[in-house]
Each structure stands twice: as structure tokens, then as C-alpha cells.
Amino acid sequence: MQQIDEQETPKQTSPREQETTREPEAEPAAPGAAGLTLVATPIGNLGDLAPRAVAVLRAAAAVLCEDTRVTAPLLLRHGLSAKLMPLHEHNEDAATPRLVARMQAGDKLALVSDAGTPLMSDPGYRLVRAAIAAGITVSAVPGPNAAVMALTLSGLPPHPFLFQGFLPPRAAARSAELAKLRAAERAGLRATLIFYEAPHRLAETLAALAEAMGPRPAAVTRELTKRFEEVRRGTLAELAAHYAEHAPRGEIALVVGPPGEDAPDAEAGLDDRLRAALAAGESLRDAAALVATATGLPRKQVYARALALRATS
């Protein structure tokens, strides 16, 4: 009888078994392995710091932050003892060359803001630009962002959106900025707008927005991820009236809906209105005041247009 050598045949496995026995994929390289890493930090709830963010902060030679008094407790909560270095609007220009030199020499630096994603209305843009220009690797650990969270909670169209940060605090400069936005909308912009605002200026800003943009739907989000989180929705005028009577506290993100396709354009026929008022014998200033009242446009904007018309007539 012929003897046959037995050979071990591979065991057949099901697709599910193959999935569970597959070699684990290698972990991606730590974002802080070289150069600069932008690390998003909690916007209120300290439990929102990502595990990978903790690892990057632990490995960094230094953590650049807006205010060491804000960042130190966050690091302490997670058992981190990284060296903290302040980086803010007052010292970023002077500190950037030195920090770039450190990274070129091999240092691993992490950049955080007091809350949320770095560079979003926070310092760091100039450093990032300089690092990129110097060929330094710039990476990021994503995480909390008040603007995006406010957008998703607002109930308003999520895209496209335009993040504006803080409007100018002074009325004239704020009116000019809103006039630019309205001009962009007249040219076709249909985006949900997102602003940050200080509590003591919220009612004033809402009133200015209502005057410039009409009865838009909007949402005020306050103290996101914190114990007293609030989302209040309504028209700009309704929200302005509410916060004029109920002074808000805490961090605020404001979301304004886009103009409707059939929304009346207050600036349509502005030149014709001004010419008619001037032809009726009104002075330049009085004509601008009358037209501003009729259209709801900022008086300074209408007066500037009246001056331009006179210069070209």
C-alpha cells in the first residue's frame, strides 16, 4: 500500500473570522513628532480634550498658549507638566522667529488657544504662516469649535456658511462691516453667517444686524458644553429685544440665516431714491437721512453714497 505524505491544508475561515484575525493596522505617527501641532481644546467641558491631544501635549517640548492661567489647569487635570509659553496678539510677531528657529533645530511645539480650535479668532496664524514658509511640518489634532457647534444647533442651513468672528465694537466700524456683507449678498452670497460676540455687546449687535439685514432668522448660543448651555432662536429683532431686557453671560456664538431668494433688497434703487430727494430740494445730509429711514440702511452708508453721486454728477 502506497504511503501518502500528509500535508497540512490551510484552515478555511469565514469573512467575519478573517476580519477579527486581521493584523492590526499601525498607529499613525504622533502629530507632534516634528514641527508644530495645533491642538483643539475644550470650549467649556474639560472632559472634551481628546486622548490624542493629551499624547501630543505630553510629548511637546513646549505648549504655546494664549494665557498660561487658563491652560495650566487643563494640563493639570490630565496629569501633564508641559512647559507653557505665552503666545498672543501682543507678542506673536516678536516670538515667531525664535519659535521657528527652535522647530528647525528639532523641537516639537504644540499650539493651543484658551478654548476651541487654534487660529479661529485666536492667535497663531502668523506663526503657522512662518512655519510653512520655513518648510516646517504643521499638523493638527481636531476637536471642539464653538462656531461649528453653534451652526449645527441653530437649526439654520449648515452650508454654505461664513465665519466672521467678532464684529468691530464701535458702531460706525460695525455698520461698515455689515454694509460689506450686504454688498456681498447683493452680488449673490447666500450663506449662513456666524459671529462671536461679547455678552455686554450682544443686544446692540443684534439690533445692528436687524437694521442692516431685516427680519432674518437667527440663533444665539451661549455657554456651549457647559452646565447652563442655552440656544435661543428667533428673528434678529426678537432676539435683540430679548437680550436688551435679559443681559446674557458667558461665551456667545451668534448664527444668522442667509437672505431668502425673494427677500426684498433695501439697497435696490438707492441711487434713484437719493436723486429724487435731492431733486425735491433736500440738502445732501437730509436726503441721506430720509433715504436711510425709508430703506433701513445705515445712515453713514447712505450719506457716503450720496457724496459719491454728487461727485459724479
Rank of each mutant, 00 (worst) to 15 (best):
P217T: 02
R201P: 03
I252R: 00
A203K: 00
D5W: 11
T9W: 10
L236V: 05
G281D: 14
E177F: 11
T13V: 15
A279V: 05
D107M: 04
A33F: 06
R232S: 07
A183S: 11
R299Q: 12
R275L: 13
P158Y: 03
G32Q: 01
A247Y: 04
Y125P: 09
A294W: 13
R305T: 07
L153T: 06
A311S: 08
Y196L: 09
R77H: 08
T152V: 14
A133N: 06
G214K: 01
A287Q: 03
R174K: 11
L80C: 08
T295G: 02
I4Y: 13
A210G: 10
A134H: 12
E6A: 11
P258Q: 07
E251A: 06
A292F: 09
Q2C: 05
T235R: 07
R222N: 06
T71V: 08
A203F: 00
Q164K: 09
A173T: 10
L254F: 01
P264T: 10
L236I: 07
A247I: 03
A59G: 08
R249W: 11
P258S: 04
P73T: 09
T312H: 12
A219P: 06
N91V: 13
A207F: 01
G214D: 13
A55T: 14
T225A: 13
A61H: 14
K83L: 11
D48C: 08
A288L: 03
V70C: 06
R98F: 06
R299M: 11
V39T: 12
V54F: 04
M213V: 09
M120H: 15
G106W: 02
A176V: 04
A53T: 07
A280L: 10
S175V: 15
G32R: 00
L84Y: 00
G214F: 02
M213N: 08
V141M: 11
E223K: 02
G35S: 06
L290F: 08
E177R: 10
L57Y: 00
L74I: 14
A288H: 00
Q104M: 13
R129D: 09
A187Q: 14
D67C: 01
P264E: 10
E251C: 05
P169M: 15
A279Y: 01
L181K: 08
A244F: 05
T235A: 10
R222W: 09
T20Q: 12
F228N: 08
T221C: 15
H200I: 15
A179Y: 01
A304D: 09
R275G: 07
G35F: 03
M85V: 15
R222K: 13
A253M: 03
A183V: 13
A240Y: 00
L84S: 01
L99E: 01
L239K: 02
L74E: 02
I4M: 09
